[in-house]
């Protein structure tokens, strides 16, 4: 069993890691990089709790063998979070009570980040569709959908404030 050296840009920083064959991106992030904000759920692609951005698009990190994405850019919930305070998407989830046990939250937030990067002004249907691969067993989803829409408003307001 030959280990491989994989280089990734994780949350903007170049990282090298030595991985066993078949190590998933999820394991590389959690075990190798200590980035445990990305959750291990079903490992079957059914729950979405391990959602991260790979080269700007959402993927389920449990289904990506890390050796296949050498040199890629990966963004996780830790990278989304600013050094001080919270990202507007996180604020929207917090203030909208869109989290109960919190296990799905980082996946939900990364799915929201993926949506807003492509579609800054989503409809409610767009929001539902964007999180349709992410399972939450607590909230009943309505608060999360509201938070995604609130996050869109907050992110575009923050964008206009920066532009001004």
């Amino acid at each position: 069993m030959k280990h491989a050296v994989v280089s990734l840009t994780v949350n903007g920083a170049e990282r090298q890691m030595l991985v066993a064959p078949g190590t998933t991106l999820l394991d590389a992030l959690r075990e190798n990089q200590g980035l445990t904000g990305t959750r291990r759920g079903c490992e079957q692609g059914a729950c979405g709790s391990c959602t991260v951005l790979l080269d700007g698009r959402t993927v389920m990190s449990c289904m990506v063998p890390v050796e296949t994405i050498d040199e890629a850019r990966v963004d996780t919930i830790e990278g989304l979070t600013p050094p001080q305070g919270l990202h507007p998407i996180q604020e929207a989830f917090l203030e909208g009570f869109a989290t109960q046990c919190g296990f799905c939250t980082s996946g939900m937030i990364m799915a929201t980040a993926g949506l807003l990067a492509k579609n800054p002004d989503p409809t409610r249907e767009d929001a539902v569709r964007a999180i349709s691969g992410n399972v939450c067993r607590c909230t009943g989803y309505e608060a999360i959908i509201d938070a995604v829409l609130d996050a869109a408003r907050r992110v575009s307001a923050a964008g206009s404030a920066r532009a001004a």
């Binding site: 064959p21 078949g22 998933t24 490992e43 079957q44 692609g45 449990c62 289904m63 990506v64 063998p65 050796e67 296949t68 994405i69």
Partner: peptide
């Protein structure tokens, strides 16, 4: 894309020991 093969691998399988990825 891995959406079918990886769940099999993550669940645990003896049916293959080599994976060839078409990603690149």
């Amino acid at each position: 894309g891995g959406t079918v093969v990886m769940p099999v691998l993550n669940y645990g399988t003896d049916s293959f020991d080599t994976l060839v990825s078409l990603r690149k």
